[in-house]
């Protein structure tokens, strides 16, 4: 089983890296880009010993307690068998 965890900056937090990328895209002539936010992506391979519900709870705990800093970041995740 795999867990995919996406960590992004909260809407209220400025993202200078995203802004820089957005500026570069516009300068390079790409059309239609309004905003870019940069984040992190984690692919976590689970050993399969936990049931789906327990695995989900564990992934949520990992994401909340380790992978994100709650002061500035939010996360979402998905599980795949």
């Amino acid at each position: 089983m795999k867990a995919y965890v996406y960590v992004s900056l909260k809407k209220s937090v400025l993202d200078p890296q995203g802004k820089t990328i957005q500026g570069a895209l516009t300068k390079m002539g790409y059309q239609g880009v309004e905003d870019v936010r940069q984040g992190k992506f984690f692919e976590v391979t689970l050993d399969g010993k936990l049931g789906r519900d327990a695995a989900q709870a564990e992934v949520e705990r990992i994401a909340r307690e380790v992978l994100t800093n709650p002061v500035i970041e939010d996360f979402r995740y998905s599980l795949e068998d």
């Binding site: 937090v13 200078p16 890296q17 800093n69 002061v71 500035i72």
Partner: peptide, 17 residues
């Protein structure tokens, strides 16, 4: 210390990157 919760807030990437 911020990550540990001993101090509030966080140190982010410098504004000029």
């Amino acid at each position: 210390l911020c990550e540990s919760g001993l101090l509030p807030g966080v140190l982010m990437r410098n504004k000029n990157l």
